[in-house]
Design a protein around this nucleic acid. Sequence first.
DNA 1: TATTGTTATACTCTATAACTATA
DNA 2: TATAGTTATAGAGTATAACAATA
Lengths: 147, 147
Amino acid sequence: MKQGADLRGLVGYQVQRAHLLIDTDARAPKAARALSPAQLTALILIRDNPGCDQTALGRALSINRSSAMKLVNILAERGLVERRPGRDLRTNALWLTAEGEAKVPVMVDALRVSDARMTARLSAEEVRTLSALLRKLGPVPRAASAD
Amino acid sequence: MKQGADLRGLVGYQVQRAHLLIDTDARAPKAARALSPAQLTALILIRDNPGCDQTALGRALSINRSSAMKLVNILAERGLVERRPGRDLRTNALWLTAEGEAKVPVMVDALRVSDARMTARLSAEEVRTLSALLRKLGPVPRAASAD
DNA sequence: TATTGTTATACTCTATAACTATA
DNA sequence: TATAGTTATAGAGTATAACAATA
């Protein structure tokens, strides 16, 4: 189908399509991986920021506290993450379990395969550029509250 | 929060975040706009491809027939799109109504404002580059069926 | 046999609102 | 007052599986 000038000028349209590409591809071998790309992303964030709290995790994922909570529940149920006492009595500190530490590298490899498939038509240089530009998007000046 | 090498290397993570930025911003003034960015995108596609059928629309949006159907229902209920007889008896031809034609430009302007807000930290050149690179993503070599 | 539209159903993800405990 | 976690509830968006009509 034809994409007119309006659509080509809207970054949001391209982002929307790209997002669905993740869904239909990387999320497909569900049973094998057992975690969605977004869930694995959360796992990686916790590994790279040990002891972080749920609210900070939510911010990093652009989701609110309540959604972050559900996400952590799933990871905890699967024995990949545990909640430990945090810096004060309100706060949880999130840590990977031994099982989580062991499994992350394997799952990251699998995710990288589908990520590479999605970017197959781009050079390594273009992938770097794309990633850098996406990172520069938002948060939006106006309100930006995810809560 | 820290983004380790794994995450920086995964385009999918950035896309996921960018997608949520659209949600929390552009979708916010709901009552005023009355269409989500994705719905407006569909409207634009129909305008730019008059007489297209639902399945083609779905492909352009990377969603399947059933989801495309729901989308068209919403647009039709609001009097923006109509189904006319298509090229054969199985097929609908999608056309904007007079009201749809009149309203699209206004809504596109509104969407462009939030799109601009999302890309506020990028130069015009960077926006073009980003858009072009996103367009080069997928469809995935392997299966790619959205149905 | 394959394709289009359609319907019914279910699932995932996220949001909102309210509550509790703590700061 | 503000913040972290929690819970219940609701909504949007998409998917799957079936069916009828048509090609």
